[in-house]
């Protein structure tokens, strides 16, 4: 669609010029990787770093997506959106450009985290496995960024959105399969973890690491992402008419 790449270019330029934000977003996942992945004494696996890396990759994508949700809302508050909407470019390209930018930015950040993980001792995988991991992360990124954008457009206020962001990110992470396998979880946590969309992505990446092609979780992610994008374009149309 015409305009999508131009909108993405604009966001990347703006992101790259806000130098501090480029690095600060990486501190948290890198700290988890090093201080938890390397230091936590666990008994259920020999290489905990290998176990936790998929979780941290998904966490990086999660926080990239959640923080990106505010972008379209800010464009709206600051008056950019009205200017864009009066352009002859198809209006949906504003939304899809934003979702693709947030996902793309998340993929860049996860790449850096992945490199750090390998440097500090995670096992190297086959290139095809990495390709599959990116596929999963991409589907998850689309899902989370369209979800965050929908919520932000709906709330229309950055304070409420920041509150929502802090409220949702940690619980989502802790109730997923990021930190421990299902068989060591208490049963109440297991029930939640199985339903958590983060677990789909994490389990899929883990399966790839074991050499399994994760058809079911990947299909679930793609299906969910499609559904949320549908909702999101509905909300977008509603706020822009």
């Amino acid at each position: 669609m015409r305009g999508i790449t131009t909108f993405i270019q604009r966001d990347f330029l703006r992101w790259e010029r806000g130098r501090v934000a480029v690095f600060s977003a990486l501190v948290m996942p890198a700290a988890w990787l090093i201080f938890v992945g390397l230091a936590l004494p666990v008994k259920f696996t020999g290489n905990y770093l290998d176990f936790i890396t998929p979780g941290i990759l998904v966490m990086t994508m999660l926080s990239a997506g959640l923080s990106g949700g505010a972008l379209l809302m800010f464009d709206k508050i600051l008056g950019f959106l009205n200017k864009f909407l009066a352009l002859p470019t198809p209006r949906e390209s504003i939304l899809f450009g934003k979702i693709l930018f947030i996902t793309g930015r998340g993929l860049i950040q996860t790449t850096i985290i992945l490199i750090i993980a390998v440097i500090i001792g995670a096992s190297l995988l086959h290139p095809f496995q990495y390709f599959m991991i990116y596929l999963v992360l991409f589907a998850f990124g689309i899902l989370i960024s369209s979800f965050a954008t929908t919520i932000a457009l709906y709330l229309e206020d950055h304070d409420s959105y920041a509150a929502f962001n802090t409220m949702i990110s940690m619980p989502l992470f802790f109730t997923s399969s990021a930190l421990m396998p299902y068989n060591v979880m208490p049963s109440w946590l297991r029930t939640i973890a199985v339903l958590n969309p983060l677990s789909f992505a994490i389990d899929a990446i883990r399966d790839i690491g074991y050499g399994i092609i994760p058809l079911f979780p990947l299909a679930m992610l793609v299906g969910l992402a499609g559904f949320i994008i549908f909702l999101c374009s509905h909300v977008f149309r509603k706020v822009t008419i």
Binding site: R17, G18, K83
Partner: peptide, 11 residues
């Protein structure tokens, strides 16, 4: 050109 001045200050 809307009322609120919306230009990208980082560009």
């Amino acid at each position: 050109v809307p009322q609120d001045m919306a230009v990208d200050i980082k560009l």
